[in-house]
């Protein structure tokens, strides 16, 4: 079972291997992308291409993990999808150990938005998890304890405290006014 959502039908990519290349051109493009992903661990390309290649890469790693390097069918599959044959060793000796007991998907897809200027083409980055590169999305700093934020927090607290006190004082005034008016009424009625 793959760990990413995929469509059951293959995505139509009519010009993936060049105009008129047909279904075989599409498969060749996918093989190139999967090879590049296993080689560089992070690739950039058109969203629809790398998204489609992601499924093949996930499946390849999953099969390698399940069956090991002694299984004939898996080895043939790795041989077919990896155009550079040294990557077969990388798949079984580096990636399979990396992803043992791994609960989530092995790859991550980041959308980059559309190209500009020119014809808008949605671009994306596909990467293997646990790669050695710096993270795509930088770590966010925790700014709560910065000096300015501490001062602002404290000022906010003081302001709120003042507000509460003024509201409480108003309420007290109102109550005392009501009491005094009640006394007036009663005194008026008795007289």
């Amino acid at each position: 079972m793959l760990r990413i959502p995929i469509k059951v039908t293959a995505r139509k990519l009519p010009h993936a291997g060049g105009r008129g290349s047909g279904p075989q051109g599409r498969i060749n493009k996918m093989r190139k992308l999967v090879t590049a992903l296993i080689r560089h661990e992070r690739i950039e390309g058109q969203y629809q291409w790398v998204d489609e290649a992601r499924g093949y890469a996930e499946r390849l790693i999953l099969e390698a993990q399940r069956n090991g390097d002694t299984h004939k069918g898996t080895m043939e599959m790795a041989d077919y999808w990896l155009l550079e044959k040294d990557l077969v060793h990388k798949l079984f000796k580096v990636l399979v150990p990396r992803y043992t007991n791994y609960p989530a998907s092995f790859t991550q897809l980041w959308s980059l938005g559309e190209t500009f200027p020119g014809r808008p083409v949605p671009m994306a980055v596909l990467e293997l998890k646990g790669n050695p590169w710096p993270p795509v999305v930088p770590k966010e700093r925790d700014q709560r304890n910065s000096l300015v934020n501490i001062l602002l927090d404290q000022a906010r607290k003081d302001y709120r405290q003042q507000k509460y006190e003024s509201i409480a004082a108003l309420e007290l005034n109102k109550q005392s006014e009501q009491q005094t008016s009640n006394i007036d009424d009663s005194s008026a009625s008795t007289s």
């Binding site: 925790d142 700014q143 304890n145 910065s146 000096l147």
Partner: peptide, 14 residues
């Protein structure tokens, strides 16, 4: 420096 995750020491020193 002031933008560390725990800037208590720089804040106090400042």
């Amino acid at each position: 420096h002031f933008k560390d995750d725990q800037p208590d020491i720089p804040n106090q020193v400042f």
